[in-house]
């Protein structure tokens, strides 16, 4: 479904170049939920922006259903980390969710149905006429999730969506994502810096090295498919996997200290 092959991104600035991504190859199968974790500053957001077609890659390809990504594909939706900046403050919650559907020329009746359903699904049916800035951070991120869900994408990208909300809200939102992912059967790439979150949500976890970034490990998460905050997180296997990813990331940090991340331009 989503194939990333030999992805490389070098930021060019006068006098020097920074290699953010060196060589990334992985795939996400249809209706799979894959998490990407890596040490901070490893280019997770760069990866996501390249996959989304928001940023041109220096080398390598991203394919969605076999089609190479050149710009943002119409079958893709993104939930950004900065919920406060990804919703239009001059529109109501309803209008925010509806806007992409209007642009997609979805007929009015169906548009109404989809907006209402997705707001219902994230538990915000009551807040439809509010403006985003009248809501709490967690609720704003729910609106962004509802907008992505109503769009009915084939591929859903999430860029550390819960990095800026408190722990309890975060647990709720994680379960919301699992539920939506199951209901919509949408191929999901979830980028996070939180190891627990990655292991809890993912069917697979891709561990990135520090910059210049390569894939360190593509780890299958062999936990029961039905996840639950309390029971899943207290499984011995959860602790093992978590410990394993943690060790990998520590190793990645060590690698960074050994080798320079930035290279002087020739």
């Amino acid at each position: 479904m989503l194939e990333v092959t030999g992805l490389k991104k070098v930021y060019q600035a006068p006098g020097r170049s920074v290699e953010a991504l060196r060589d990334l190859t992985f795939r996400v199968d249809a209706a799979e939920l894959v998490c990407v974790v890596g040490p901070s500053g490893c280019g997770k957001t760069t990866l996501l922006r390249c996959v989304a077609g928001l940023l041109p890659a220096t080398a390598g390809t991203v394919r969605v259903s076999g089609e190479p990504v050149k710009g943002p594909p119409p079958s893709m939706a993104v939930v950004f980390q900065e919920y406060g900046r990804s919703l239009f403050p001059w529109m109501t919650v309803w209008q925010n969710v509806e806007l992409p559907l209007q642009e997609k020329k979805v007929p009015r009746e169906e548009r109404r149905r989809r907006v209402a359903e997705s707001l219902e699904a994230v538990g915000l049916a009551e807040a439809a006429s509010a403006h985003p800035w009248q809501l709490s951070g967690g609720m704003q991120q729910r609106v962004a999730i509802a907008r992505a869900a109503a769009y009915e994408p084939k591929v859903l990208l999430m860029d550390e969506p819960f990095a800026a909300v408190d722990a309890q809200t975060r647990a709720d939102l994680e379960d919301l994502i699992l539920r939506l992912w199951r209901d919509l059967e949408v191929t999901t790439l979830f980028v996070t810096h939180d190891i627990d979150e990655a292991v809890y949500l993912g069917q697979r976890v891709i561990v990135l090295s520090s910059s210049p970034t390569v894939v360190m490990e593509d780890l299958k998460i062999d936990l029961p498919p039905q996840r639950d905050q309390l029971t899943t997180r207290s499984l011995p296997r959860f602790a093992e996997l978590r410990g394993h990813v943690y060790a990998q990331i520590q190793r990645a940090r060590g690698v960074r200290e050994a080798g320079p991340a930035e290279q002087e331009a020739r």
């Binding site: 943002p72 893709m76 939706a77 806007l99």
Partner: peptide, 10 residues
Amino acid sequence: VLSDTCRMYG
């Protein structure tokens, strides 16, 4: 971020 949002959602 809003500009990216516009691009993503057409």
